[in-house]
C-alpha cells in the first residue's frame, strides 16, 4: 500500500558535502556549499528553494552536465563524481526532464520515446518501437505517436518526455521544474499523471520546483534549500500516504504541512531577493 514500502532497491543518491564554485564575470560564485542530502531509493524527493539558489546546479552535477569542486555524489554506492573524478558521465540511469522541454522537434513522439534504447544498442528498432508504443499507451498517449512534438499540447509533450525517460528503465528521474510553463489546470492533471506513472514504474524521483503545493502533493519528502550557496535548510517528511489524489489538497494535514513549508521558504525567498538587489 505504501509506495515506498514496495519500492525498488535501486536509485539511492548520496550527496556528501558537495561544493560548487564557478567563475562568472563578477568573480567566483559559490553556488553550492557543503551540501549533504540522502535520497532514498524509490522515493519522490522534492527540492524547493528560491529561484537561482543553486538547485539546478546540484541537478546538473548529478546528471553529469558539469563538475563539482568538492565533496562526492554516489548512486547506489557507486561514485558518480567526487575526489579524482570531478564530473559524472551523463547516462541513461539518470535521465533529466528539462524545464523547457527537450523533445527533439524533428522526430515524431514515437521516435523520441524509442530514441534511448536504440542509440544505446540495447533494443532493435522494432523492439524499441513496440516497447515505446506500450509505454505510451500506458501513459494515455495513444493517438499522438506519429505526431511531431510541435503538433501536440504542452501537457502532452511533458508526458511524452517523461515516458521517453522511463523507456531507459532509469534508476533516477531528474526533473527540473518540468511543469513550470504549464497553466495551473494542466499542471494539476500532470501531477496526477506523474503519480500514476510513478506507481507503475518505481523509480527514484529528484524533482526541483518552487511550487510548494506541487512539492507537498507529490513528494515523500520535501527538502527546502537555503539560497545561494545552496544546502538543505530543512527536510520535511510528508506523512500523507500514497497513492494520493487531488482530494488531499483540502485535508487539514496538507494545510499544516503547507504552513510549515511556507514559513521556511519565505525566509529564504526574502534573503534571495535582498541578495539579488545587492548584485545589481
Amino acid at each position: 500500500m505504501n509506495a515506498r514500502a514496495q519500492a525498488a532497491t535501486k536509485g539511492a543518491i548520496r550527496i556528501q558535502n558537495v561544493d560548487k564554485v564557478y567563475y562568472a564575470r563578477e568573480g567566483a560564485v559559490q553556488a553550492v556549499s557543503d551540501c549533504s542530502l540522502d535520497i532514498r531509493a524509490g522515493e519522490i524527493c522534492m527540492i524547493v528553494g528560491p529561484s537561482g539558489c543553486g538547485k539546478t546546479t546540484l541537478l546538473n552535477a548529478i546528471a553529469g552536465f558539469h563538475d563539482i569542486t568538492g565533496g562526492a555524489i554516489h548512486l547506489d554506492g557507486e561514485l558518480l563524481c567526487g575526489p579524482g573524478k570531478p564530473q559524472a558521465e551523463p547516462g541513461p540511469d539518470r535521465v533529466v526532464v528539462f524545464q523547457n522541454g527537450a523533445l527533439f522537434p524533428w522526430k515524431t513522439n514515437l521516435e523520441n520515446v524509442a530514441f534511448g534504447p536504440v542509440v544505446q544498442g540495447k533494443l532493435g528498432k522494432a523492439e524499441a518501437r513496440d516497447k515505446a508504443l506500450g509505454l505510451m499507451a500506458d501513459a494515455g498517449l495513444s493517438g499522438t505517436e506519429h505526431n511531431y512534438p510541435g503538433e501536440v499540447s504542452s501537457g502532452t509533450r511533458r508526458r511524452v518526455e517523461i515516458v521517453r525517460a522511463l523507456m531507459n528503465d532509469p534508476k533516477v528521474l531528474l526533473l527540473d521544474e518540468p511543469f513550470r510553463a504549464l497553466d495551473s489546470l494542466t499542471k494539476s492533471v500532470m501531477h496526477e499523471a506523474l503519480l500514476e506513472i510513478y506507481y507503475k514504474n518505481k523509480v527514484t524521483i529528484f524533482f526541483i520546483t518552487h511550487d510548494l503545493e506541487e512539492a507537498i502533493f507529490l513528494g515523500h519528502r520535501v527538502a527546502i534549500m537555503t539560497t545561494r550557496p545552496c544546502k538543505p535548510k530543512k527536510i520535511l517528511e510528508v506523512d500523507i500516504p500514497h497513492p494520493r489524489n487531488y482530494g488531499v489538497l483540502t485535508s487539514p494535514r496538507f494545510r499544516s504541512l503547507m504552513e510549515e513549508t511556507v514559513n521556511a521558504v519565505h525566509e529564504e525567498a526574502v534573503k534571495a531577493f535582498e541578495a539579488g538587489e545587492k548584485e545589481m
Binding site: 553529469g64 552536465f65 533529466v96 522541454g101 527537450a102 527533439f104 542509440v119 525517460a165 531507459n168
Partner: peptide, 23 residues
C-alpha cells in the same frame, strides 16, 4: 538542452552529431 538530453539517453558523441546537430 537537446544535446544534453541526447547524452542522458545514452547517445555517443557521433550519435549526437548525427541525430541532433545535423537535423
Amino acid at each position: 538542452s537537446f544535446p544534453r538530453a541526447a547524452a542522458c539517453l545514452g547517445a555517443s558523441k557521433w550519435q549526437i552529431f548525427r541525430h541532433i546537430i545535423v537535423p
